[in-house]
Structures are given as C-alpha cells and as structure tokens.
Design a protein around this nucleic acid. Structure first.
Lengths: 268, 268
DNA sequence: TCTGCGCCCTCCCCCAAGGGGAGACTCAAG
DNA sequence: CTTGAGTCTCCCCTTGGGGGAGGGCGCAGA
C-alpha cells in the first residue's frame, strides 16, 4: 500500500491529478480510510496508472479514457478508438504542417527583406536579368487590384513560389482606370492551372531603380529612371516590370515608408 | 460602422470572441455608445481583426497577440516572435509524430494478431523458416525477466523492428532459476549498439505448434510437440524458439487466454 | 398604443486538466 | 508531547470562449 505521495512518485502523476482521477472515477485508490479520507494505492493501481499515462500520451481525454477503461481490457478491443485517435492526430499534424509552412514563408521573406535593406543604394543601375519561370494572371482595370491576382496565384501554386512577386505593365503610359497588367510570381515548376498562366519570362539587358516608400510615390522614381534611360537614347521593351521586394507583409500591412519596389526597364 | 453582429459576419469571429477581445483590449471597437453600451466597428477594425485571426491561426495566445499588436506594426519587427512560434510548432510536430508512430505500431500489431486469430488451427505443423536479421539480448536468470530484454531492444532499435518478438532457449531442458535465453526482435537494419547484438538467425526445417492461452500452460504444448518430434525420430537443434504472436499488449496486459505463442523446434 | 421581433448588453456558470494555496487534520519519529 | 512532513477538502485561477438568463433598444405591424 502506497500513500498518495509515494504513488505519485512511482507513477509520475501529480497528486493533484491523482485526486482528479479519483473524483472522475478513472483511477480509484484500492483503499480509502473513511475516518481520515487518506487514499492508499496498491500494485495493481500502479498498472492501471501506467495504462492511463499511456493513453494520455496518445491524447485521449479523461472521459475517453474512462470509457476505455470501463469497458475493455485488451488492446485488440480498443482498436477502433486507436484508429480514430490516429486519424485525429494525423489531422492535427496536417494543420500544424500548414502552420510551419506559412511561418517559414514569412520568416524567409522577411529575412531576405532585411538583407536587402542593408545593401540598397537607390540609384539607377544597369544589370542583366536571367529568364525565369513565372505564373501570371493578366488583368485589366485598376493597378491596385493586382492583389487579387497575387492571391489567386498563391492559392493555386503557393507551394511552388520561389521569389518575390512582380507586376508587368503592358501600357506604355500610366493609366488610371483601364490599365493592362499582369500579376506574376516566380515558380519552381511548370503546373497547368486554369486562370493562371505559367511561362518563361525573358531576360536581358535592364536598367533598374530601387524605389523606397509608398506606392503613390512611385511616379517620382519612374521619372528618374525614364530620364536616365532617355538620356542614353535607349529603347524600352514592354512590358515594364515592378518587383515588390518589400510590400505589405503577410500579417501586418507594415509601414509604407519601408516598402521597397524595384522598377525594371528592359532595353534593346 | 458595423454593429457587432455585422462585424462578426464580416470577420468570421464569433460575437462572444469579439466581446472577449474587447475586454482583453485586443481589439477595441472604434466607437462604443456610452448610453447603451453598443459596440460599433469600422473598416480599420476589420483589418485589425484579420491580423488577429492570422496570428491565432499560427497558435499565438491572446496575450501574445496583445503584446505583438501593442508594440509592432510590421512583419519584420515580429520576426523573433515568429521564429519562436515556429520552434514551438516544430516541437509539437515532433511530439505528434511520435504519437502517430506509436499508434501505428500498436494498430498494425493488433491487426496482424486479429488475422492470426482467424487462421490458426493449433496442430503441429512442419514448415521451412527463412533466415532473418534479429537484435538479441542474451540473458541468464528467470524466463519471466525477458521483458527487460525486449524493452532494451525497443529503446535502442525501436525504429527498425519489423516483426514479432521471440525468445531463444539455449537449455535443453526447462530450468526454473538459472535459465540461459535470449530476447530477440526481428530488425530491418544492422545497427551497432552496445548491449544488443544484431545478427542473422539461421532458418531451416522446423516443427511448430501454436500455443493458445497463458504462458504457465506452455508446458502442455511443449509436451505435445516434443512427443510429435520424438515419434518421428528427429534431432532438435538448440536453441528452441518461442514467437510471441500475441502477448500482453502495448497498453493493456490483455486477457492471457487470448495469448498466442508459437513454439518452433528446428530439426536437422 | 400595444406587442412582438431581432439585436444588443451585462452577468453568471460551464468545459478540460489540472495548478496554487489556505486552513485543518494526520502520521511517524524523536 | 512536539514537530515537521504529508494529506485532506475547498476555493479560486488558467485559456478561449459557449450557453443562457434577464433586461435594454429600436422598428414594424395590428
């Protein structure tokens, strides 16, 4: 016979929990002194306690354990419970995997953004751009609706995205209302999906300027880079591109003053 | 301005939850009519609500969310929180993976046992046994201590076990006290571990008898199979083997009357 | 004008699985 | 007999709300 303290040390179950199990008739001490109310446990209770610990590790609730203990004494007989439990655990696993995936995406994104913040110098720069595989949604209307395009790509091809979102502008000029543009995401893999076109975006010689600040100030940066290109007598190839290096976050909208957008003009 | 009911429908957060968030100063309605106490929310609150939903999906507690919302407005600034959260989620994932693994092991075990129960006919049978890779712990003492051997193998090589536990008996006769035996488990892979020997167990011509019931009745089945073998003038090769097809379960000890043990005697 | 309805409010209790602690006994040893 | 450790019951607290009681508010129909 063990007192509750000894029994607690033996089984690793806290005294509080033991009293709770007693109250719920899950694990009844083999003897209770009626005068003092002291609980006493024996060897067989130890065995029962181990079973309970086992089942709790599997995530069964106390009431489920009560049912199981009340009716069955063999693993074989609780197969249904075990299978149900496994399914529930698998569902939890799937949900958690989604969570880590999202968290990882955000973390990676922001870490890249952080690196970017350090090295940028905000001057027009000439460089060569590699071709890349992109998924795009061609749209017509207001620029600010491009978010819908991105979210559609995210939903369909979220798993394959491998770079920063960008937007292609097919109009030679700024259009307020009826703009013709395409929301794009670099992807790893060519996947056929309706509503989203996957194709290779050409590379080439390019002038780029990093714009910092909110989108409604983009005009100034365009002015700067266009002047730069025009001075050199270069011919711009449409569509022009904007790469959203850092925009509204996945959680917060963030501070627009910290947004970073790269304007890319491909030239012949 | 939305009433709490409208706001609830917009954001997908229950009215109860909204009132709780208000009480915890997590999401304050933009206007509260002092006379009636009615809560009114606006567009910006919708945005805030989405952030909260997002963070809750990641598993942040309400108090964590309060801290985050109170101090930061950019994904970048909460990177530390996100990373901490990811680690916590990864830990949960690992724990759950263990749970499913254990559950799967038990379920598979019991399903095999169930199949076994149906086909068995409890007569001496001649068959050929394939060699197999086993992990073994050689022991000396009482047979009933073999459980310690099995648990040691389980701890060291649990991941590689691929069959039913068995026991090898090196004594030609029954010994009560100072028996020489080896607790074994079939394994998939040769792994070097101290205290556990992994090697190939030879196969060959074999007579086997399925014993059903508790272990203390094994004597009768031995009598039966030994008589059978002796009648045919065959020479037994030591060690003899017992395969525990169904014994005490991983959770319950189960009913000994349902235990199934296969006695295997290899012969020349 | 009365009544009913649909919302909304606060306040209280409830869930799981115990943890923490107060105040009162009890046990065992010195 | 005392003392300290162990145990008892009882109550409140946690998280993230759910359920419902009792009452206020405004609007529409009879």
């Amino acid at each position: 016979m063990f007192s509750i303290g000894e029994f607690s040390r033996i089984t690793g179950i806290s005294i509080k929990a033991l009293r709770l199990y007693h109250e719920k008739e899950l694990l009844r001490p083999s003897f209770v002194q009626s005068r003092t109310g002291y609980r006493y446990y024996n060897e067989r209770d130890v065995e029962m306690a181990r079973v309970i610990v086992r089942l709790r590790e599997f995530g069964f609730s106390l009431s489920e354990i009560q049912t199981i203990l009340g009716q069955y004494t063999d693993d074989q007989e609780i197969l249904d419970y075990l299978q149900a439990r496994r399914e529930a655990v698998d569902a939890e696993l799937a949900a958690l995997r989604n969570v880590t995936a999202s968290l990882n995406a955000i973390i990676q994104n922001e870490q890249e953004a952080r690196r970017l913040m350090k090295q940028a110098d905000y001057e027009v720069e000439e460089k060569n751009i590699e071709p890349m595989l992109i998924a795009g949604v061609r749209m017509r209307g207001k620029y600010s609706d491009c978010g819908q395009g991105f979210s559609r790509i995210g939903k369909k091809l979220g798993r394959y995205i491998c770079g920063k979102p960008l937007c292609l502008y097919y109009d030679g000029e700024y259009k307020e209302e009826d703009a013709d543009f395409e929301a794009c995401m670099p992807v790893r893999k060519h996947v056929e999906t309706e509503g989203v076109a996957v194709r290779e975006l050409t590379g080439g010689r390019c002038f780029s300027l990093l714009h910092r600040g909110p989108y409604d100030q983009l005009g100034r940066s365009y002015e700067k880079i266009l002047k730069y290109v025009k001075e050199r007598g270069l011919e711009i190839i449409l569509p022009t591109r904007e790469v959203y290096l850092k925009g509204p976050g996945m959680i917060f909208k963030g501070n627009p003053r910290n947004y970073r957008t790269e304007i890319q003009l491909l030239v012949r």
